[in-house]
């Protein structure tokens, strides 16, 4: 990563993102010890807000920031030149071409290829298996893309994370930030070793259910 961009990224997170996330919002993190110190690793989480990516990037120290690679939908983030510049250079997204959003073309590159590459480079990949943000504070079914990653890199730790509150603070389609304390619950890492796709998906579902079990989240309807 270019030194200038790395500096800009650190400034952006230290001066803007972290003060907003830690002071205006406020995180309550559980299971921090389950977070891999370094890559390669994949963090998977439920997705309710643009803040999700920024929060997951903020729970790592600034010096690790340049190794964090959030996977984002190419059709959304690469739409305008400004968004494209910002998401490529400051957030450093891995743009993913969502199969459902484009017509299949023959001979196209595997959409997961850039993710495999980042994992191969030892980066920490952030991946939202729901595919898109969805309705605030509602968990939708995980797509099995994450199982494809686990099959391709069976020994890479895949860390399930459940987040609550960010969809209240900044839901899809809204631009007004409303402060709420947000819960970030980090589960134990899973790997693809000895599991086929189906088994892997149910292992993840089980783990996410465990993370929310017995916890109080205020209703939001």
């Amino acid at each position: 990563m270019d030194k200038v961009y790395r500096l800009l990224q650190i400034i952006f997170f230290a001066a803007i993102v972290r003060p907003i996330i830690l002071i205006v919002l406020g995180l309550r993190i559980d299971g921090r010890e389950n977070l891999p110190k370094s890559g390669p690793a994949v963090l998977i989480a439920n997705h309710n807000s643009h803040l999700d990516t920024l929060v997951l990037m903020s729970i790592y120290p600034l010096r690790k920031l340049h190794r964090m690679r959030p996977v984002s939908a190419a059709d959304y983030f690469l739409r305008t030149p400004l968004k494209r510049w910002f998401s490529t250079n400051i957030i450093r997204v891995i743009p993913m071409i969502r199969p459902s959003k484009t017509k299949p073309k023959s001979g196209r590159e595997n959409p997961f290829e850039p993710i495999f590459e980042a994992i191969g480079d030892g980066d920490i990949v952030i991946f939202f298996p729901e595919g898109s943000r969805g309705a605030p504070e509602q968990l939708t079914a995980f797509h099995n893309g994450i199982a494809r990653i686990a099959q391709h890199h069976p020994d890479v730790p895949i860390v399930p994370i459940f987040m609550h509150g960010l969809g209240k603070a900044l839901p899809k389609g809204d631009f007004v930030l409303v402060p709420f304390f947000c819960d970030i619950i980090i589960g134990e890492a899973l790997t693809g070793v000895g599991r086929d796709r189906q088994e892997f998906m149910s292992a993840i579902e089980e783990e996410i259910a465990k993370l929310t079990h017995g916890r109080y989240f205020a209703s939001w309807d």
Partner: peptide
């Protein structure tokens, strides 16, 4: 307080 109590999503603003 606001995080703790049940709320209606429509009241965000």
């Amino acid at each position: 307080y606001l995080t703790l109590v049940p709320n209606r999503a429509a009241d965000r603003r």
